[in-house]
Design a binder for these strands. Sequence first.
DNA 1: GCCATGGTGGACCGCTTGGTCCAGTTGGTG
DNA 2: CACCAACTGGACCAAGCGGTCCACCATGGC
Lengths: 205, 205
Amino acid sequence: MSDGPKTSSEPRTTRGRATRARIVERAAELIAAHGVDATSMDDVRAAAGASKSQLYHYFSDRDDLVEAAVARRCALVLDELTRTLGAVTTLAELERVLGEFVAFYEQHTMGCPIGTLASAVADRNEGARLRVAAAFDAWERLFADGIQRIRERGELRAEAPPQTLATALLASIEGGLLLSQTRRNAASLRIAVDAALRQIRAFAA
Amino acid sequence: MSDGPKTSSEPRTTRGRATRARIVERAAELIAAHGVDATSMDDVRAAAGASKSQLYHYFSDRDDLVEAAVARRCALVLDELTRTLGAVTTLAELERVLGEFVAFYEQHTMGCPIGTLASAVADRNEGARLRVAAAFDAWERLFADGIQRIRERGELRAEAPPQTLATALLASIEGGLLLSQTRRNAASLRIAVDAALRQIRAFAA
DNA sequence: GCCATGGTGGACCGCTTGGTCCAGTTGGTG
DNA sequence: CACCAACTGGACCAAGCGGTCCACCATGGC
């Protein structure tokens, strides 16, 4: 489950693990800041204070490093999402969390950390694509589990379908973020999220 | 309204206009097929059967050509969308058109022609970003106008907000396409579009 | 028929890119 | 403490990139 067959070599010493981790960490930061295509191996090398041979010692090629960095970034984002969504058990909490989410993007005009990776990687790096797909799955499950808890609590009727509602909510968020990023105006995101939320509320008991 | 201040020179002869158009056309095709970042000036040059000096005669730099190609691609896509959405006047027609839309993506796994451009260009080419934003606006308006016609026809109640519903529908489509493209499975798109449609149907008279 | 202007061909340039190679250092184990 | 695999540094390379330059061709108004 750790990773694909492409990885050059797994570090065997403490120092090696630290070096590899430093490279992945810096690569993930650079990619998050400037995008996959605008991040070169040499940028990573410099930021990590490593040498060329180290990059190619731990990663078979650029795609391999990108995949690791994408996986790392997804893990970080999912940590944050789990922290805010993992404990949601009421409709009010879900609405509050999503409200804060939208409020954040009203102040920081940017794309979705995961969605941006998705379209940068989808048709070009199969390994990285799978990592992003897994991140979407995990995010969607956080929504689905939360909705299910709300339902079990009795706030939603039994026929409310958590999985479907979660998919629709995630799609609204991703689409809303793309529209808002392109328009440099968070209004679209707010409308999209409100619509998805209304859809859920339609199943209120 | 024609274009920005960056354009090197507008062709003054029939031959010049043909050459410029050929370059833009091929650039738009290559970008649609392989993405903005994977399309080099030399790829365009070869595909258009032109010389380097011609590219830089008609466009000040790569960004300028990308902007023109993006605008061209958006225009083509919008033509098609206008053809299918422009005449929608009933809920059933809207549902049919969207059903065909989803069906298409169930067979051809790919991203949204416009959405893909959006995220490739949003933070890197301001001129192109504005073209994509305008395309989103036009698409959204096609939806809004259609919903309004449906409402005026009496199929939707007076309080149905065409503009808001159009934004939510577009966001659902874009998000659904991104999820489906990443997952290589059109199920997410179908769910997202169904949800948006249900939202509209909720205002049925 | 001349000639200015717009259009064209393609060699050329400096730079960055992903990737290779090998000599040297480090550090855990027998 | 010796050894060997793991690790490191960085010079080096070919290919591809965006972009420049200049000599040459086409054409329509005088």
